[in-house]
């Protein structure tokens, strides 16, 4: 089972291993080829890893369609795609197909070119998928998840991100039983949905 398979099966340490394994190479490439500052390069890397993680959990990326040798190029391409979207002040989709990022797959020429040339080449990539309404709605979804208050923020993190069982969540959050966890989870998701839809409405997107 490669690292993708291990993350998919819920191995807690696998994601940390992935993060530490590819960190140095990713930061070095973006600093050299795109003249990205250290902190910005780290932000890009963390967003690329988060995107990969989401795609693994959504089954868009599996052990079969992303062998171990392709993980590094995938992260680099994702990083470039994120950089491309940031330069256009656009949102990066939360879940996406692999071929979308592989348009940004680099070549060895990049290493020999200046950062200005590399950025110019990046900007030339055409993206006909851009949709302003989709972009705005993604922004609303992300900001609403950030803004949801406690205890919903913690509960949803435990259940959705950390994958804790309802029994574990009940112990951590001192709920009476697992039924309480289920009903609280439903209520929190409902709150989040209502927040998002009300913000869609404010932006003029009724449905």
């Amino acid at each position: 089972m490669n690292i993708i398979g291990r993350i998919s099966s819920g191995d807690d340490r696998a994601f940390d291993e992935l993060y530490c394994t590819y960190r140095k190479g990713f930061l070095a490439l973006f600093r050299k080829c795109f003249d990205v500052g250290e902190e910005d390069a780290l932000d890009l890397y963390q967003e690329a890893c988060a995107a990969l993680y989401n795609n693994i959990r959504s089954k868009k990326v599996t052990e079969d369609n992303l062998p171990a040798a392709k993980v590094h190029p995938y992260l680099i391409s994702t990083g470039k795609w994120i950089l491309y979207n940031k330069r256009r002040k656009r949102q990066v989709p939360l879940v996406f197909e692999t071929d979308l990022v592989m348009r940004f797959h680099g070549t060895e020429e990049e290493m020999g070119r200046s950062p200005i040339e590399n950025l110019a080449a990046l900007d030339k990539v055409e993206d006909e998928s851009y949709d302003k309404e989709y972009d705005d709605k993604l922004f609303v979804i992300r900001s609403s998840v950030r803004d949801i208050p406690e205890p919903c923020s913690r509960l949803l993190d435990l259940v959705v991100f950390q994958g804790k069982s309802h029994k574990e969540v009940a112990e951590i959050m001192h709920y009476a039983n697992t039924d309480t966890v289920s009903s609280q989870r439903w209520r929190c998701m409902q709150k989040l949905r209502e927040l998002v839809l009300s913000r869609f409405k404010l932006l003029g997107y009724e449905r």
């Binding site: 939360l94 979804i141 992300r142 959705v160």
Partner: peptide, 14 residues
């Protein structure tokens, strides 16, 4: 929406 909300929660957690 629900699957996107869950993806956003995972992204924030990660």
């Amino acid at each position: 929406l629900d699957s996107l909300l869950e993806a956003a929660i995972r992204e924030k957690g990660a």
